[in-house]
Design a binder for these strands. Sequence first.
DNA 1: GTGGCTGCAAACATTTTGCATAACT
DNA 2: AGTTATGCAAAATGTTTGCAGCCAC
Lengths: 148, 148
Amino acid sequence: MATPSAAADDELAVLLGPSGHRVTVPRRAVWEALAPGAGHLTVDELADRVTALGHDVDLASVYRTLALFEELGIARVSRLGRGEASRWERAHPDEHFHLVCTTCGSVDHHVGELVERVRDHLADGHGFVADTVELVVTGRCGDCRPPD
Amino acid sequence: MATPSAAADDELAVLLGPSGHRVTVPRRAVWEALAPGAGHLTVDELADRVTALGHDVDLASVYRTLALFEELGIARVSRLGRGEASRWERAHPDEHFHLVCTTCGSVDHHVGELVERVRDHLADGHGFVADTVELVVTGRCGDCRPPD
DNA sequence: GTGGCTGCAAACATTTTGCATAACT
DNA sequence: AGTTATGCAAAATGTTTGCAGCCAC
């Protein structure tokens, strides 16, 4: 499959068109690589996936594409660990946070009402209008936790 | 004041002594620069403060010192913005989170029960043992918020 | 056709590391 | 004395940018 699907093509056209940005091969490829279920990808991993899809996109273009996607609100970045690279995913409508296992390195999403609660808490008289809420929890996941 | 105070000296001796680490000039200087109330400092800012205190400490030593302090649990690092450098502070006993204003760039602490609540929430049947909880909220602070 | 987008390469910023020397206990 | 920590310099990493040519619109 060396060509991004027509579906992704259309989808991107809808997402990019209104803002006057062009639909290009690198952008379609990055959007596909960033597919739902792909998890939290570093730019390098993303570039590898793009290559696996049969494209040869420069790292700089991947960075520029991601910056654009973030600006448009269709991708999301998080800084998950110490000294680690940024990790990207498609933006979800759901508020969620990240559970980073320090043993196996897995990163899980955790959708919950917690993030919303943070927002509410701040809205109540703290004079701070929350824009983004980034919640990262490190620890040991169920699989890596030493048995009790 | 070219010499770190005796107080900081004693304090560090207490903090480092038990673990067998030595009390040295760079470590005393970094500990002083990282004084409470100094806010969230980048390594560069920290190095500048060290210089202002009359010392000449190499950046590599600042990094090594901070890594040690973190390992000992007496300093804390956060990745606050996109592409930004890490910011350091002395570790507090209080759980807290950060409010980053996207307009004026200020970073405030916000001590609250929220972080604790996150921990409790995860402990209840999610199989994840939380180690650190990092909560960063971006938005507009009271001073920068447009009047209603 | 034209302006936005890409690839390339080089610059940049932050952080880490190897090694000989200096300093603490 | 015996380590351990430091300074220096170089490398590694992640990300950004300038510019000439290309491509979607």
